[in-house]
Amino acid sequence: MYKLRGHHLFCLLGYQGMGYSQEYVENMTQVHQTLRSDPQTWVQIIAGPDHLCEKYPNSGEYHCQDPHIDNRDRIILEKLGLKIGQVLKWKDIETTIQKNTVPSDIEVICETCSWRSYGVCEEGIQHIMEGKGLRKVQ
């Protein structure tokens, strides 16, 4: 079972092999590929640093404990109707995203995210909306 925070549910949708360090990319790729190949994988929604944060590079400010990131987590979980501590299968998270989001939500919810300019998150939500699951990492 993976433990994931709110905003990482969206990050996984847009993931295309980019990240903060090689170690972070390898970890994110492993999580993404597991969820993509086995959407029956259990996920627990948590507050604060999660499975992906474990490999965030130790260089400067620890972004994973930034109050702005916590706020983004809260907004995303509210939008999806999910709660801290909830355990569900990844496919059920995809269904929840499909029912409760549109690609343009990224513009507002993730306005200050440095990855937003790549446009991959909007594409990822569109892919989920079309019932195609997580996209293959290019």
Rank of each mutant, 00 (worst) to 15 (best):
E54W: 09
D50Q: 12
H63C: 13
T112D: 03
W115N: 00
L88C: 07
D38R: 06
S59K: 12
P39G: 03
G17M: 15
I69Y: 07
K3C: 12
T112C: 01
R116G: 01
I128W: 09
E111L: 04
H7T: 03
V31F: 08
R72G: 07
I109S: 03
Y62T: 09
D73C: 10
Q138F: 15
V102I: 15
W42R: 10
V108P: 00
K99W: 12
T29G: 06
Q98E: 12
I125K: 09
C110I: 00
P67E: 05
K91P: 01
E111M: 04
Y24P: 02
L52S: 06
H127F: 13
W42D: 11
C11T: 01
E61I: 14
V102E: 10
I76E: 00
D92F: 10
P57I: 09
Q98S: 13
R116Q: 05
W90G: 02
C121A: 05
L35G: 10
M129F: 13
R36W: 07
N100F: 14
G48Q: 11
F10R: 01
I109A: 03
K3G: 10
H51P: 03
T112F: 00
R36N: 06
S114Y: 07
Y15M: 12
E54D: 11
W42N: 08
E122N: 05
C11W: 10
Y118A: 01
L82C: 06
H63F: 13
I125G: 05
M129I: 15
A47L: 01
G19E: 06
W115G: 01
G119C: 11
E111I: 00
I46R: 04
G60P: 00
W42Q: 14
W115I: 00
T34Y: 04
E54I: 09
Q65C: 11
G133T: 09
Q126E: 15
P39K: 05
L9H: 02
C113Y: 00
D70P: 00
K99V: 11
H63N: 07
T95F: 13
C113R: 00
V108N: 04
Y118F: 05
Y20F: 15
E123G: 08
Y118M: 05
N27G: 02
L77P: 03
D66I: 09
T95V: 11
C121I: 01
W115L: 12
H51E: 13
K89T: 10
P67Q: 04
E107S: 11
Y118T: 01
P67F: 05
V137N: 01
V87C: 11
S59T: 10
N100E: 10
G6F: 10
T95N: 11
C11F: 12
S59Q: 11
T112N: 01
K132A: 15
L82Y: 03
I128Y: 08
I128K: 08
H32W: 08
T101S: 14
V87W: 08
V137F: 03
Q65D: 10
D50C: 09
K79M: 12
S114V: 02
D50T: 10
Q16C: 06
G48S: 09
D92A: 06
E23L: 08
P49C: 08
